[in-house]
Design a protein around this nucleic acid. Structure first.
Lengths: 204, 204
DNA sequence: CGCTCGCCATGACAAATGTCAGGGGACGGC
DNA sequence: GCCGTCCCCTGACATTTGTCATGGCGAGCG
């Protein structure tokens, strides 16, 4: 018989992580060798235990799942990464795939299904939740240029133009122009609605 | 021996709900009699199965945990409500307690601990996570009047004043006055930052 | 009864923001 | 080399905001 798949579980919600560990541990061919509650901790655990598959939550303190995946890609090329997320936004999926993530599923799947997906990913295949994939495709690519996205992000917390200009080392007029074009491209009423839209689509 | 505590589990994330059901089911004195993935479904399940304790996620499609709790309070007075939440904001705790919720815990607790808390709540006691309680106390009460909060909420999606005025059936000038006073009270830079602050503190 | 407070409104002014029309420079593709 | 695109800026303008002063109305309270 082949050895069981060694898993790393990372999620900041102890309740979920523990429950998941217990359920996945019931499968004969899966074994949880490490758990982590934050991004940095996940990295440390991965280095120490060298799992076959890392199951990462997208939103974690310290470093999010995609960042961790990026680091793992170079440090442990043999370790496949599977991202699990509560509310998946189209842009996140794109970023995740770009980071070399092999699987991307919402938390609405059952544990049974997750176990299957883990096996799929471990076998070298990819798995992306069909619904999330459809969202990502229909949402399309971000129409924003990098500067537009950057300025929009700085505008996210409601800061006035002058402050954004300072933080971006741009002239206030330029900031307003970028903001204006971003708002137009997104079809929003104003920059704040634009920020919301961009966030929803995962473009910031 | 006494009969086992009958539980209703409601959470839109199947992964968590299933895992939780499995883990809590392992306890001798707990039995999961119903599961739901949305607010309305939770209500229907509660009516059908009349559980002793309802374990509700705070954020669910349809109706959030607090709304469900309010309905349950009148329909099934014998059913104690325990709210579980990912990221607890101070105001939510306050609203929950006002709705007659008996327990309020973050998802960072372990399943073991949750089982104990369920027993505590079923025994007629209350339980609030110490950390969340501290946050709620230090954050204090909302300084906003009801109209200020209402207008601020309508401003949340970045709508212009005229639109807010329309939706609130107020004059645009009045809206600006309320917004202005809310911004002042919260010590924010502008209304959008104010919305963020109020959200963080759970005041909207 | 007078007081305070929340509620709703108006009008006016200053400041911030959204929009438009420009113009230069860099860089890659045809 | 020319063209398109993105980058960065300027200046001017209309619109939207934030802020303030002011007033009327009703409810709760000493």
């Amino acid at each position: 018989m082949t050895a069981a798949v060694r898993l790393l579980l990372a999620d900041d919600e102890h309740l979920i992580r523990g429950a998941l560990a217990a359920l996945l541990g019931l499968e004969d061919d899966l074994v949880v060798v490490a758990e982590a509650a934050s991004g940095p901790e996940a990295l440390a655990m991965a280095r120490a235990h060298r799992p076959d598959v890392a199951v990462l939550d997208l939103q974690m303190p310290g470093a999010d799942g995609v960042k961790v995946a990026t680091s793992l890609r170079t440090e442990l090329p043999g370790c496949q990464v599977l991202i699990v997320t509560g509310h998946g936004r189209p842009g996140h999926l794109k970023r995740a795939l770009a980071a070399g993530v092999r699987g991307f599923v919402p938390k609405t799947v059952s544990a049974q299904r997750l176990a299957e997906i883990i096996r799929t990913v471990h076998a070298g295949h990819r798995y992306v939740d069909p619904e999330l994939a459809a969202d990502a495709i229909s949402a399309g690519d971000s129409p924003l240029t990098s500067r537009e996205a950057e300025v929009l992000e700085l505008a996210a917390d409601g800061a006035p133009v002058t402050e954004i200009a300072e933080r971006a080392a741009l002239s206030p007029g330029t900031v307003r122009n970028y903001l204006s074009s971003a708002v137009t491209k997104l079809g929003a009423e104003n920059r704040h609605a634009a920020v919301r839209l961009a966030r929803e689509r995962g473009w910031v």
